[in-house]
């Protein structure tokens, strides 16, 4: 990367003694800088991932690895109705399995929070006090997700919840219910809450992309007689389009990692009869709640990674 390093590499074969000194000095420096951080990273992040990848092919006696069983854990997990519940999917009845629920989050939550984020970013872009407005929308993203989950329970409470009060005021009494505990609708109520929290993040990314646009571009379009709609499609959208990929992928990553909000609303079961369980919940239950099934926990966590990893690498490649 640096020229100096090219030289160091070239000079490695050189017989000049001083160069060797530099090399040794550099090797020591590299070790001093890298080893403390990388060893903790290796022990507590990379190691456990490798452990899970290997462990997913072994039988487990609670926390102890037993014999190699090939794809047994994988097949068993993918057939488990807690992960994918085929018969319920055909009838479109919850629970449909954690993986299905996660994908439903992706399909509804990600587009909604992306559009809302772009909309709010555009709405706030040229207003006075936009920093305060943005912070009000973004604040939810800094709140512990477990609190978000509890707040959602509070909002959707049949008596104390403001959402049901709004329904009553609108004369929709028949809809009043304990939303987070009603199996067939609860997941939509939670997704709405997810959108509420996550839109602030999408808006933040879009806002920073918008503020990077040279104002003279927009002014010159105005001079050329382009209306607001034309200005958006011809100038603003092409310039913020690359950010959309980041917003969408970050949204998918966030949704695939969903745990705290679901746990707060539905506990370790993921709602009544697992009605809105997600993959994270299933990992936790398989690994740390009886009956402990370490093999399945590892498989499910790896499925989470497989869905997200290509997207993250795509972002990295993009830059």
């Amino acid at each position: 990367m640096s020229l100096r390093d090219h030289i160091d590499a070239l000079a490695a074969d050189n017989e000049v003694g001083g160069v060797l000194n530099i090399d040794r000095e550099k090797a020591v420096a590299l070790a001093v800088f890298l080893i403390p951080g990388l060893s903790l990273f290796a022990i507590f992040s990379v190691g456990p991932i490798v452990y899970s990848a290997v462990g997913s092919f072994y039988a487990w006696d609670t926390f102890t690895m037993e014999e190699f069983v090939g794809l047994d854990n994988w097949i068993r997990s993918l057939r488990d109705p807690l992960i994918v519940h085929w018969s319920n999917i055909q009838e479109f009845r919850y629970p449909m399995g954690a993986l299905t629920h996660n994908l439903l989050w992706v399909v509804i939550h990600v587009p909604a929070s992306t559009f809302l984020g772009l909309g709010l970013a555009l709405l706030f872009a040229d207003l006075k006090g936009r920093r305060i407005l943005r912070s009000m929308v973004f604040a939810g993203f800094t709140v512990p997700p477990i609190v978000i989950g509890l707040v959602l329970m509070f909002i959707y409470d049949p008596q104390a919840g403001i959402f049901n009060e709004v329904l009553r005021v609108l004369g929709q009494e028949q809809w009043v219910r304990n939303w987070t505990q009603s199996p067939q609708v609860a997941i939509y109520a939670l997704i709405a809450g997810g959108i509420w929290v996550h839109t602030g993040f999408s808006m933040l990314l879009y806002s920073s992309a918008l503020s990077a646009i040279d104002p003279s571009l927009i002014e010159s379009a105005k001079v050329d007689g382009a209306g607001a709609w034309r200005r958006f499609w011809d100038i603003i959208w092409p310039l913020v389009k690359p950010v959309t990929a980041v917003v969408v992928i970050m949204g998918i990553i966030w949704v695939m990692r969903m745990f705290d909000i679901v746990y707060a609303a539905g506990g370790a079961a993921g709602g009544p009869n697992h009605a809105y369980s997600v993959l994270g919940i299933e990992v936790y239950r398989a690994a740390f709640r009886p009956e402990i099934d370490y093999g399945m926990a590892m498989v499910v966590a790896l499925i989470q990674l497989f869905i997200v990893a290509p997207l993250a690498l795509y972002i990295a490649r993009m830059n």
Partner: peptide, 21 residues
């Protein structure tokens, strides 16, 4: 000394300095 030569030598007075920082 920000770069090291690929070939040849550099002297300060009679002292060879290439390879030195």
């Amino acid at each position: 000394g920000l770069e090291q030569p690929s070939e040849g030598a550099i002297y300060f007075d009679d002292e060879r300095v290439d390879g030195r920082s």
